[in-house]
Amino acid sequence: MGRPPSVDRAEIEGLYRSYGALVRRRARSILNDDREAEDALQEVFVRVIKSVADFRRQSQPSTWLYRITTNLCLNRVRDARRRRARLASVGDSAKAIPPTATGPAETAATVHNLLAQLPQDLAEIAVYYFVDEMDQAEIARLLGVSRRTIGYRLERFVAQARQLLAEAGVAPPGGLGVPKTEGESG
């Protein structure tokens, strides 16, 4: 009981060298804030240290870190939203979504605003799909569910996102929601 994690600083430094940028970048994408991302980076590595025996055995540490980072950051987004809830209505918050967007930064901003307001199981998948550009089969492997389940949850996320935008009086840009076939199967 209570013995400190059996890991030394050199090993942790090595893990930062290999994976720090990945965690930092993704935290920044989800949280949309540099300082929050720095803190999330540390929180993720605290988790690595506390589960170091488990972490060392991962054959694909990046997938483990993707999940931990995503969920930690989503929790932060939600906590921040709870703190703000007394000050701003859902409509005001949805209006912060840029109606026209052109690149990865805008995708991150849009996703960030939606993540705070939509259920976490849908939000996690939306991060992998819209921010990390995974395909549905890849997300299905990461989460251990079927490709169909991923597709349905993504559709639910988008439907709820559209509803939030409509309630906020933000007209979705033209052509959205018309699926094009990507050619993947699963």
């Binding site: 993704r26 995974m134 996102a161 018309v178």
Partner: peptide
């Protein structure tokens, strides 16, 4: 089955052009 490509309101199209494209996870 749901469609393979799903668009997000307020966001640009995804980077992926086809099944051969690499996710950020793959690139990492």
């Amino acid at each position: 089955d749901p469609p393979n490509d799903i668009a997000l309101p307020g966001a640009p199209a995804r980077r992926r052009l086809g099944p051969g494209c690499a996710s950020d996870l793959t690139l990492d």
